[in-house]
């Protein structure tokens, strides 16, 4: 049942709006405080990057669960084909902040040498491929990459992150068909907005579930709630595990709520994990302050360094 217009239907919830865990075993082995710190870092990165006023910049606040899950769960040999709101994937994957900034600012010393678009980041060393911005066109590359990985050896996967808007394109459907045909070790991560900006419902998904559509064509899929960072992490881990294991492609649909839309506080994935920590006695205001100060300090230092 949909509680409010903000709640997605048909999702497996692990962490509810009050920060209570449906299955405590789901976080065994997960350092929740480190996990929370990564989410906070992703949030602050987005806020600070937003202030650079880059052309065609889109804020990612509210989507941290996806970035942190992908960035921290992928194996060393896995590749990530990022979209335009995935700077935090690069951060979590270890791309230095100075390099992130240099690419976004189009500086000559960046790996992309001032040529790439500001939205997405590319780094061969960190196995990150930026989006071409021709919507959906990078999905074919990701599938091809996954196919190549499979020919080399089992145990490597490719991940592509994108928004629900491009699931209407031909390239999306062709990429799914090819991934299935080749049993490609491929994880599609679709960030769906229930209320996308600038378009009426009939031009978008009309409440339709991408995960269900994909399942109808024979692909493994899961739908989860972007406000539930623990649930998102579990679903993406499962898809990666299948891909690594040779079971073929899968798609994880994450229903994200952009904070720019001013949703209720429980739709904020960072706040929800904070509530979980709080309920376990693991959250204090000083811990919060130190966590924030740390990433603020690192970012300010990096901004100063690249501005020289």
């Amino acid at each position: 049942m949909q509680a409010t217009a903000w709640e997605p239907e048909g999702v497996e919830a692990l962490l509810d709006s009050k920060g209570a865990l449906a299955d405590p075993a789901a976080v065994s082995g997960l350092d929740l405080r480190s996990f929370y710190k990564q989410l906070v870092a992703a949030r602050i990165l987005d806020l600070k990057l937003g202030r650079l006023e880059l052309p065609m910049w889109a804020p990612a606040a509210g989507e941290e669960a996806v970035s942190v899950a992908v960035g921290s769960l992928v194996g060393e040999e896995d590749w990530v084909f990022v979209g335009n709101r995935d700077a935090a994937v690069a951060l979590t994957r270890g791309l230095p902040l100075t390099e992130i900034l240099r690419q976004l600012l189009g500086q000559a010393s960046a790996e992309t040498r001032g040529r790439g678009l500001p939205g997405s980041l590319s780094s061969r060393e960190h196995k990150l491929m930026g989006a071409s911005e021709a919507l959906g066109m990078n999905l074919g590359l990701a599938v091809g990459h996954a196919h190549g990985q499979r020919l080399f050896s089992r145990g490597r996967a490719s991940v592509a992150i994108f928004g629900e808007g491009l699931t209407t394109t031909g390239m999306f459907h062709e990429s799914l068909a090819l991934a299935l045909a080749h049993t490609a070790p491929m994880v599609f991560v679709c960030k769906s907005q229930l209320w996308p900006e600038g378009a009426p419902a009939e031009a978008g998904l009309m409440g339709d579930s991408v995960a269900e559509r994909v399942r109808a064509r024979g692909m493994w899929s899961r739908r989860c709630d972007g406000a539930d960072a623990v649930g998102v992490r579990r679903a993406i881990a499962a898809a990666l595990h299948r891909a690594h294991d040779g079971a073929g492609p899968g798609l994880v649909e994450v229903v994200v709520t952009p904070l720019a839309q001013d949703p209720p506080a429980e739709r904020d994935p960072v706040e929800r994990v904070r509530r979980l920590l709080d309920s376990r006695g693991e959250w204090t205001q000083p811990f919060q302050d130190v966590t924030e100060a740390e990433i603020h300090g690192q970012l300010d230092k990096a901004i100063a360094e690249v501005s020289q």
Binding site: L135, G165, L166, T168, T169, G170, P200, A203, G204
Partner: peptide, 9 residues
């Protein structure tokens, strides 16, 4: 007419 992202279409 508002369309989905479907230029070919």
């Amino acid at each position: 007419v508002d369309t989905p992202i479907t230029e070919t279409g």
